[in-house]
Structures are given as structure tokens and as C-alpha cells.
Design a binder for these strands. Structure first.
Length: 148
DNA sequence: TTATTAAGCGAGC
DNA sequence: GCTCGCTTAATAA
């Protein structure tokens, strides 16, 4: 497990990487930058407003159930600058009425930004919740040009 | 096997 | 605007 701490427009971020890929991204209050990593640089550029493609970054899925992984992989397919509802995700993966479970799965997401779960909001355009708080979610959506 | 849980949604007032 | 009822899979007891 490799750990990189770097500074971004939303604060210090801790990036955890295993042999299989990105394991987790965490927001921390204080810290000192501890070197760099290509993925850390991509996240930093993204948070500064640049359009970055995270699709090719490998993710360490260990700990997720098959269905949870399916949900998160579907969320990754949502293109930059667009948003989807929780029920859209549910229908896409074949849960006709079980979309309430989607919220549960997204709350388990260890890698915000890389898996853009901030692009999943209420149908009426209210924000749902977010691992790092609604303020960060709003920041990310406005960054991509989505008005609420 | 049962109870609890989670970041939603639409109907009806 | 607000309240209410509901679905699903995962986890714990």
C-alpha cells in the first residue's frame, strides 16, 4: 500500500494505491505533501478546472460485492459535464425498483472524483449526499459547468 | 432467518 | 411546498 498526500483546491487529499490500482481517496484536514504520483497530478488538474479523463485509471475493487462494483462501474460511464439520477443508475443495471439501494452503494464509494458519484443527484436537481459533504459536491458540479 | 440500514422517488394533499 | 409509503441487497444478530 502506497500513500501519497497532496494539496488541492478543496484541501489536502490522501491517495492510497495498491498493486491492483487506486484503493481509496480521502480528504484530510492537515498534512504535508509527500511526493507525487501521476494520478495525484490528474486529480489536482481536474480540481483546478481542467477536463481530465479518469476512465483508464485502474481501481482496486477489493471489498466490494459484485453488484456494488457493477453500480460503481456504471457511474464511471457518466460523461464529464453531465448528471444522472439514482433511478437512472438502477435501471441501467437492471434494478427496476431497487434504486434506493444505489444510495447505499455510493455511500460505500472509497474513491470520489475518480468514480464521479458527485454526478448522481436527485431527479429534481437537489443534491443528495456526498462522502466529503454537500459543499464539495456542489463545487465539483459547478466545476463541470452544471448549474443547479 | 429476521431485523436493520442507505446519499431516492412519486403520489397526494 | 410538505408528508407518506415503498424497494432492494448487504450486513449483523
Amino acid at each position: 500500500m502506497e500513500e501519497i498526500i497532496f494539496y488541492s483546491p478543496i484541501g489536502y487529499l490522501l491517495l492510497q494505491i495498491t498493486k491492483r490500482g487506486i484503493y481509496a481517496v480521502k480528504k484530510i484536514e492537515k498534512g504535508e505533501t509527500t511526493g507525487s504520483h501521476p494520478v495525484a497530478e490528474m486529480i489536482k488538474r481536474y480540481l483546478e478546472g481542467e477536463k481530465v479523463d479518469f476512465a483508464k485509471i485502474p481501481i482496486d475493487w477489493s471489498g466490494y460485492s459484485p453488484l456494488q462494483k457493477k453500480v460503481l462501474e456504471k457511474v464511471r460511464e457518466v460523461p464529464y459535464g453531465e448528471w444522472r439520477s439514482y433511478s437512472w443508475v438502477g435501471k441501467e443495471i437492471g434494478l427496476n425498483y431497487g434504486w434506493r439501494y444505489i444510495g447505499k452503494v455510493l455511500s460505500l464509494n472509497r474513491t470520489p472524483i475518480i468514480i464521479p458519484c458527485h454526478r448522481i443527484i436527485y431527479k429534481n436537481k437537489n443534491l443528495g449526499g456526498f462522502t466529503w459533504g454537500k459543499e464539495v459536491k456542489k463545487f465539483l458540479l459547478e466545476l463541470e459547468g452544471i448549474s443547479l
